[in-house]
Computed example of a mutant assay.
Amino acid sequence: MKKLLVLATAIFAFNAPVFADYPEKDITLIVPWSAGGGTDTIARSLVKNAKQYIGVNVNVVNKTGGQGVVGMNATKMARPDGYTAGMITFGLSTYRLMGLSDISYRDYELLQLLNQSSAAISVNKGSQFTSLDDVIQYSKANPGIVTLGHTGAGAAWHLSAASLGVMHDVEFNYIPFAGGAPTRSALLGGHVSLAATGIDEVKDLYEAGEVNILAVNAATRHPAFPNVPTLAEAGYKIDAPVLDWRGLALPKNVPADRVAFLEEGFKKMFNDPEFRALAKQKGLILVYEDSDGFEGFLGNMEQVLQPTLDAVGLLK
């Protein structure tokens, strides 16, 4: 018994400095969507000055596929040592409801909510459509002809466009892509007629005159896009806007002291003046909730999305 006690004491003494010295190396932040998209942009902007606040760099790694499942599952399955964090996004609220994956927010140690975004319906500068009414009227006369690019069935931008179609009896031809960047490229290249993206994701293209935003799926106009009408203002109101969200999480069972350290560190990055200025420049609406508030938000989100998914035939 005495030998066991000595051994346990030795093990504790050996392990203690590891926790005290954390972090000893850079931290990885897994982003489940492609480089250049809205989620990737906010992640890289957030951690740009990470070393100033936590003493090490945070390196973004993009792991795409499965409508975000691949990357978010990689975060869930990562070693729980505090050296891997992940961006979790809107899809986590729909996977189980759609029967795509068993993962949900309950599988993570939540850190914080970062952002909420509203969807935009956009066309390229050479489009035959100059208003949302043009799109709706043409689509009603030609069901299934108008192609609409998005980031996957059940993703926020798809549900935003699909809810518009359901409410106003319009049939689009939905074309999925692996993130906002390839969706924008398809729109610019004329491979799709419309794109449903975060409005912030097309800000630069809009300001450069490369795309025209026909409407935003929100209750009010976006402050960075005062000339873009809401769906209701464009004549096609829907019951409730579908908003995208992004947040930070860790695998389960990360030691409590490391969780607390990362919560504090990422909050400092969130409040970094350079990050907040860049978010404003990009049209990103920042919304902070701590781990408890984030959990409550996600629980409510599942309840809100159930009838939406049912309306578009995606609820399992």
Rank of each mutant, 00 (worst) to 15 (best):
R258D: 00
N62F: 03
G152L: 05
E289A: 10
R96Y: 14
A311C: 06
D292V: 14
L29I: 02
Q128N: 13
G152I: 06
M98A: 07
A260W: 01
Y83F: 05
N57Y: 09
A224Y: 10
D21G: 13
D81S: 00
V69M: 09
W157I: 15
A232F: 10
L113V: 03
V146S: 01
G180W: 01
A153G: 13
Q137C: 14
N253F: 09
E295Y: 13
I88H: 07
I27M: 04
G198T: 09
V56W: 09
I199H: 10
K268N: 06
F12Q: 10
L46A: 01
G313S: 07
I88R: 08
I213A: 03
M77N: 15
R79Q: 15
D239V: 11
D40S: 01
A74Q: 13
L194K: 00
H191V: 13
M167D: 13
S93H: 04
S104D: 09
F172H: 05
T183C: 02
R44D: 10
P17E: 05
L284C: 11
G247Q: 06
P17I: 05
V304D: 12
N212L: 14
D292C: 11
F90T: 01
W33T: 13
I145E: 14
L243M: 11
G299Y: 10
E233V: 01
A186S: 05
G149K: 00
E274M: 11
T220G: 08
M87A: 09
V216F: 11
G68F: 00
R184Q: 15
N227Y: 10
A120Y: 05
Y288D: 03
D239T: 12
Y288N: 03
V18I: 12
A43H: 07
D26K: 06
Y108Q: 04
A13K: 10
G209K: 00
A74P: 13
A178P: 11
K125E: 07
V170C: 01
E263Y: 07
D272E: 08
L248F: 03
A224S: 13
N115R: 14
Y83I: 02
L298I: 04
A13F: 11
D21A: 14
R221A: 08
V146L: 03
D239N: 11
L278A: 15
L286R: 01
Y105M: 12
M269L: 05
W157G: 15
T89L: 10
T89W: 10
Y22M: 06
G180N: 07
L231V: 03
Y95A: 06
Q67G: 15
V47C: 07
D290F: 05
D102N: 15
K267N: 04
R184H: 14
A43E: 07
D102R: 14
E171L: 13
Y105I: 11
L194H: 00
Y53L: 04
G313A: 07
A234S: 03
A181M: 10
D239L: 12
A208H: 06
